[in-house]
Simulated assay, not measured.
Amino acid sequence: MTTTAVRMRSLRRDYGAVAALDGVDLDLAAGTFTAVMGPSGSGKSTLLQCAAGLDRPTSGTVAVDGVELAGLSERRLTLLRRERIGFVFQSFNLLPSLTAAQNVALPLRLARRRPARGAVREALDRVGLGDRAGHRPSQLSGGQQQRVALARALITRPAVLFGDEPTGALDTTTSREVLSLLRELVDREGQTTVMVTHDPVAASYADRVVFLVDGRVSGELAGPSAEAVAARMAGLERVTC
């Protein structure tokens, strides 16, 4: 039976008089890859940040891996993010003075946990960089740096991996390599993944694309092709112009 990894109900996030999210109801199934798309200002990144516990909604509820976020103190929310949530940004956010292995181990170090023997190398192996453990970011390509960031997000074995334009800073070839890796993690390991993207080709790697317009869900596509996603986005952008 399919379980729900992320559950959002009546989710609203206001910034002053502007509603970035306006009553979102959305379930994200465990073991699936979901892409979130929409015109500029549609609330995509806000949705991701609220779902990942990085921002608190004005009203409504979010549950991740069965845990309601609204009732958690800041300390408990921080612990949940460290242990059950992974996040990959467009910018790699690696510390330049640390090696790949040290960057991957950083979340555990910050939580004052000693990495299990071989855990860091295993995380790097999962993203195809086991032989780059001793390299610093300046010695790695952009795609390799994003793979290190991905390994860092995966080191805690999160229930959900969130990505905010994770391939936005990469060239086309490297972007496809990272997307193929994300797809493989879902297929091989059942890693629940949620990604905001503006790229129809990137979205085509997902099982499902959810479209937002003006902070509201405006339809979805299952088993999407890049062409179908591009056509839907073109229609949404005409409506919002």
Results as ranks from 00 to 15, higher is better:
Met1Asp: 12
Thr2Glu: 12
Thr3Asp: 10
Thr4Phe: 05
Val6Gln: 12
Ser10Asp: 15
Ser10Met: 10
Asp14Trp: 10
Asp14Ile: 03
Tyr15Phe: 15
Asp22Val: 07
Gly23Glu: 09
Val24Asp: 04
Val24Ile: 14
Asp25Cys: 12
Ala29Thr: 13
Thr34Ser: 14
Ala35Glu: 07
Val36Lys: 08
Met37Ser: 11
Gly38Arg: 02
Thr46Lys: 03
Thr46Glu: 04
Leu47Arg: 06
Leu47Asn: 08
Cys50Ala: 06
Ala51Gln: 05
Ala51Trp: 02
Leu54Gly: 00
Asp55Val: 07
Ser59Gln: 11
Gly60Tyr: 00
Val64Phe: 08
Leu69Trp: 01
Ala70Lys: 02
Thr78Ile: 00
Leu80Ile: 15
Arg81Asp: 12
Ile85Phe: 01
Phe87Asn: 02
Ser91His: 13
Ser97Lys: 00
Leu98Asp: 10
Thr99Tyr: 05
Ala101Met: 07
Ala101Val: 08
Gln102Phe: 09
Asn103Gln: 11
Leu106Arg: 11
Pro107Glu: 12
Arg109Glu: 15
Ala111Gly: 01
Arg113Val: 12
Gly118Ile: 04
Ala119Lys: 04
Glu122Asn: 02
Asp125Leu: 01
Val127Gln: 06
Pro137Ala: 12
Pro137Met: 12
Ser138Trp: 03
Gly143Tyr: 02
Gln146Cys: 11
Leu154Glu: 06
Leu154Trp: 03
Leu154Phe: 08
Ile155Cys: 00
Thr156Ile: 08
Ala159Pro: 04
Ala159Asn: 09
Val160Lys: 06
Gly163Leu: 04
Thr167Gln: 09
Glu177Thr: 15
Leu181Cys: 09
Glu184Asn: 09
Leu185Asp: 09
Arg188Ala: 14
Glu189Cys: 11
Gln191Lys: 06
Thr192Phe: 14
Thr193Asp: 10
Thr193His: 11
Thr193Lys: 05
Met195Pro: 04
Met195Thr: 10
Thr197Ile: 14
Asp199Lys: 05
Ala202Trp: 03
Tyr205Ser: 06
Asp207Ala: 07
Arg208Ser: 06
Val209Thr: 13
Val217Ser: 01
Ala222Gln: 11
Ala222Arg: 12
Gly223Cys: 04
Gly223Thr: 10
Ala226Lys: 02
Ala230Trp: 06
Ala230Ile: 01
Ala231Thr: 15
Arg232Ala: 04
Gly235Asn: 06
Leu236Pro: 05
